[in-house]
């Protein structure tokens, strides 16, 4: 009996040590990526190529979901606000919830599942087909040549995608509230402008998206680089990318929100 308990405790300890080791490995990998990104910034065409795959190809899902999220917010906000005779505040509601929370978070979740998984699968497959090792043989550093451009492309495209998401969402809210329902257009925009503050709301939203962009792409490139070089290993790494980055986005969002908006009312 005591032997079983010892084995059980040993199992817990083994897992904890493994996970902490992996976290440290990921951090070292992240720092190495930053250190070796100098050459990829000098060869900016590499980053532009990756921007096409992470940014431009993610655009359509971002635009469509932003539009629909804004339209749903407009409908639901109108339903509730008109009970209090405050239906002109629907613009404020849509803009604040998109700029502060929904824009950064939903765009980052979509980005993780659309672009993050693609990055992991690509790098993982490169590893499985021994392309990364071949690069090493040719004295080309795979971190500088493959990982760093993808990382920076993700970091650049995330804030832009989130801004497009928020703008499309506000346009969707405008379509529903003003065009379809008939809320007064002037008070829709003016109430929004009088409440949404550039420094507190929009800049804080941009800071959030930058943090999410770094987190999601760092997780994606690490999982791809760390994948088992088999078909199963790549699929497992892709799944882990989406799950881990979604959880990290939600956790970071709570931490950032509690620091940014606690004292502002």
């Amino acid at each position: 009996m005591p032997r079983r308990i010892v084995i059980g405790i040993r199992g817990i300890g083994h897992r904890v040590i493994d996970n902490i080791w992996r976290l440290g490995y990921a951090t070292r990998f992240f720092i190495l990526t930053l250190l070796k990104s100098g050459s990829s910034i000098r060869r900016f065409s590499l980053i532009i190529r990756e921007l096409y795959f992470t940014g431009v190809l993610t655009l359509i899902i971002i635009v469509v979901s932003g539009l629909f999220v804004g339209m749903v917010l407009g409908l639901q906000g109108y339903e509730t606000l008109q009970k209090y005779g405050a239906e002109t505040s629907v613009g404020t509601l849509v803009a604040l919830s998109l700029v502060r929370e929904l824009g950064p978070v939903v765009a980052a979740l979509l980005f993780a599942s659309r672009a993050g998984s693609a990055i992991t699968a690509e790098i993982g497959l490169m590893k499985a087909t021994e392309q990364l090792e071949a690069m090493g043989m040719m004295a080309v550093d795979p971190i500088a040549r493959v990982v760093a451009p993808r990382f920076w492309a993700g970091v650049i495209s995330m804030p832009l995608l989130a801004a497009i998401f928020s703008a499309m969402g506000i346009f969707g809210g405008y379509l529903i509230a003003v065009v379809l329902i008939g809320v007064d257009e002037g008070s829709f925009w003016s109430q929004m402008q009088s409440v949404v503050d550039f420094r507190f709301d929009i800049v804080n939203g941009i800071i959030k998206t930058c943090v999410f962009g770094v987190a999601v792409t760092a997780i994606a490139v690490f999982e791809g680089f760390d994948a088992q070089p088999t078909a199963e290993g790549v699929s497992g790494a892709t799944t882990r990318t989406v799950v881990t980055s979604s959880l990290v986005i939600l956790g970071l969002d709570f931490i950032l929100t509690s620091f940014m908006f606690r004292g502002v009312g």
Binding site: L51, V56, L59, S157, P159, L160, I164, A167, I206
Partner: peptide, 9 residues
């Protein structure tokens, strides 16, 4: 894409 993003900002 970059122009659209900056325009949205």
């Amino acid at each position: 894409f970059v122009m659209a993003g900056i325009g949205a900002l």
